[in-house]
Simulated assay, not measured.
Amino acid sequence: MADPSRLERLRGLLAEGGHAAMYVSDLVNLRYLTGFTGSNGAALVPTEGEPLFLTDGRYRDQAAAELDAAGLGDVEIVITRDLIGVAAGRAPADLVAETHLLDVDSWQRLDRPEASGRLVERLREVKDETEVAALRRACEISCEALEALLVGPLVGRTEREVARDLEWRMLELGAEDKAFDTILASGEHTAIPHHSPTDRELRAGDLLKIDFGARFDGYHADCTRTVVLGPAADWQREIHAAVRESQAAGLDRLRPDVPVADANTAARASLEASGWIDAFTTGLGHGVGLQIHEDPFIGSAHPGRLVSRTVLTMEPGIYLPGRGGVRIEDTVLVTDPDHGGEPDVLTDLTKELLEID
């Protein structure tokens, strides 16, 4: 659910930049600011004065109800098929917009606004209590579903069957949907970072990599665990241990005021020390919230520092083509320094190498 304070914070950023108003057309940003969940809408947010909400007749009642639930019942709602036209007629000078989403015609009709500079995305990086609660619940559902799935039996079932089983368990536990298409890979398929489940049957001795999550109240969980079906081979134990150590090193850097790039450096240094850095071919982590991938993205070039109440993933891996791979991933809340600043792992599942019968 949205909160009026989000609009006020956006007004503050607009004022700092000397802008009179912002045209918001990204539906994820619109939901964040107003609570609206429909498929067609926009808002004109002035630095001073009341916002204007725009949608078409299909969402007349829904928009009124969702804005009222968000404490924005006094916001003017205009029902129109020409969102751009109405906004252009009401917009003041010094308008900014999400220009990366506008086609040239729309940009021209709005009188060529400046780019907003991802102002709303900056606000979304730091979660409020409502958002943290939704993320925490999404992660709880995910963990409970996976723990039940791993009771087994799994050998002899197909990747596709097991993936659908896991998704159904999340729905039964209260998820509104899966957070993304489940990545469930077995055997040599585990070397493919984003493998789509197939009809390959799970076999004794396989690595089984499961990257999944539930969505709750619009917020996404993201978690990966890799297990072995039966007793683990030495090489499987070795790469699992290396990934686990790398993830622990990265997690330890997810603290307030630590440079984002430090987490990347720490996790990669661990893999380099164990001799597996060349087998890590994906990104290390990303923000998660109303989108499964959102700012900030963990990388060596990130110029910023971590802020408390940011939620990110930490997901190193080792991928050996034709043989197998391991990834361990958690959704993590950067905590307030007044509470020690310890990373709060929301996907609270064991990271021991499980050997599943």
Rank of each mutant, 00 (worst) to 15 (best):
250 G>M: 02
206 D>Q: 03
220 H>C: 11
231 P>E: 08
205 G>N: 00
296 P>Q: 00
261 A>M: 08
265 T>E: 15
262 D>N: 07
231 P>T: 08
218 G>D: 13
222 D>R: 12
267 A>I: 04
235 W>L: 03
201 E>S: 15
258 V>L: 07
207 L>A: 06
278 D>H: 04
288 V>H: 05
239 I>D: 03
291 Q>M: 13
282 T>C: 06
201 E>K: 13
276 W>D: 04
223 C>W: 13
210 I>K: 02
231 P>H: 05
218 G>V: 09
272 E>W: 10
268 R>G: 14
269 A>Y: 01
238 E>P: 00
219 Y>L: 15
248 A>G: 15
217 D>K: 11
222 D>A: 14
287 G>V: 08
287 G>N: 04
223 C>V: 14
266 A>I: 05
260 V>K: 00
296 P>L: 01
214 A>Q: 05
210 I>M: 06
271 L>T: 01
271 L>K: 03
268 R>P: 13
261 A>T: 04
258 V>M: 08
249 A>M: 06
211 D>V: 10
255 R>W: 04
244 R>I: 09
256 P>Y: 00
234 D>T: 11
244 R>L: 15
204 A>L: 13
210 I>P: 00
237 R>P: 12
296 P>R: 02
232 A>Y: 11
219 Y>G: 05
250 G>A: 05
292 I>W: 12
240 H>R: 11
291 Q>P: 02
206 D>H: 05
298 I>M: 00
214 A>N: 03
287 G>K: 05
286 H>Y: 14
276 W>I: 15
217 D>W: 14
284 L>W: 02
274 S>E: 07
204 A>G: 12
256 P>T: 04
210 I>N: 01
242 A>S: 09
227 V>N: 06
268 R>N: 11
266 A>M: 09
281 T>W: 00
264 N>A: 10
